[in-house]
Structures are given as structure tokens and as C-alpha cells.
Amino acid sequence: MGREILRIEHLHKEFEGKTVLDDLSLTLAEGEVAVIVGPSGCGKSTLLRCVNALEPIQGGSIFLDGAEIHADPRKLPQLRQKVGMVFQSYELFPHKSILDNITLAPRKVQKRSREDAEAEALTLLERVGLADRAKDYPRQLSGGQKQRVAIVRSLIMHPALMLFDEVTAALDPEMVREVLDVLLDLAKQGRTMLIVTHEMQFARAVADRILFLDDGGIVEEGRPADFFDHPKTERAQRFLNTFTFETVKE
């Protein structure tokens, strides 16, 4: 593995006095794909949101490529360009066409020319199979298509780290696949990614490392084969059992 992209040290996060993340530390190397799994409400999404400072933190520190994220609010827009984030609810801008959704940030934030940004946007759209939808508006697309556009919108900023927050949770089952295939493709390209998901099969396929989060801390971490086949902790075993069903009929 290459150089270190993300380092989280003793992160402490609370909501109105209630501790959500407690003394959490984590490092992510370049090209590494870490998948965070765990029961609802364990703080998975909050952890991702802390990484690009959408949530304030109450203790510890987070470094992106050596720069501390929560140190100076004025540097945040600068730092956030290096972190792409894709949300569960896509959050495309409804008043802009697909192409304008994708090119807004490169043009306004990175001051790239329209031609340059649009050319790259079309190349990226091509990769996710949506080049012919560039002129359409978000409302004309299906959930899976919107989510692929949202991924492209993040990628065009050339982030050093991508965060995926349950990106398939709001999708109909038949659309989950098309989005996960894009993520698998990104993993193959060697992108550094931190993924929160409930799709265990996918987690196993895409991850270099699984982080099992419960009660605001990392309870267990390891390679996917080890974690899914031989979970060490009792809590992880119990969690994984919720995904299997006993046959009730012969």
C-alpha cells in the first residue's frame, strides 16, 4: 500500500451530550478500499460526515493527506475538493442538467474552462453508461442513474479520497447492481475509498479491509474473508447472523 491518505486519531463526536463516536482511530492508505459495516445507529454515517467536516467534532483530529481537516474553517472548501462524497439520496441539483450538475464544481471551484470540464464530464458519463443523458434533468432519471451521476459529479474533482454513504440504500433492488458495479470499477482503478453499506456480498467483493463499527467504536477489523467467515467478536457474529436465514421448510 502507498502513502497515507486519511488518518483519524482519537475521534470523539457527540450529539447533544450523547456520545456517538468514542476514541476512534483509523488510517487509510492510498488505493485502499475500506468498508464500514455495523448495525443502524452505530455511527457509520456520522463517521463519514466527520471526515469532510459536515459534522463538527468534539475531540481528536482528522488528517487528510497530512492536512488537519477541522483546524481552519476557511480552508474547508479547499480540503473538501480532495474528498468526494456521495450521499444516500443522490442530492443532484434539480435545476441543473446532468452535464451542469457535473461541471458546476470544476468550473466554479477549480476555475476550469467549460470545454475542459464538459469533455471530462462526458468521458466519465460514458464510463458509467450515461453519456446520452447529459442534456437531461435529474427528474428524468431513475434512482440508479441519478446515483451514478452523483458519483461522476464527485469524481470529476479528482478527489484523493471518496466517501460513499449507503449509496444504494434508497434504491430499488434492481438498480442496486448498476451502482455497485461502478464502485467495483473504481476499486479496480485503485481509488482510495471509504464505503458505508448494508450490502454484505458487495462489501466482501470490494473491500481490502472491513471495519465493524458498533457503539461508536471499531469493534473488529480485518480482511473480508476473515471477517465474514470467522468473525472474532461475539458482537460481529451476532450482527452477521442477522443477514442469514434458517430454512423453515424442507
Binding site: 473538501r80 475538493q81 464544481a105 471551484v109
Partner: peptide, 16 residues
């Protein structure tokens, strides 16, 4: 709120 957040996550500052 998510519209503000996705704009922020793309690196847009408050004014943009």
C-alpha cells in the same frame, strides 16, 4: 439541508 451539504462536499464555499 442535503442540498447545502452536497454543495459543500463538492468544495463550493458559502457564497458559491
Amino acid at each position: 439541508r442535503h442540498q447545502y451539504e452536497s454543495a459543500a462536499a463538492l468544495g463550493l464555499d458559502g457564497k458559491q
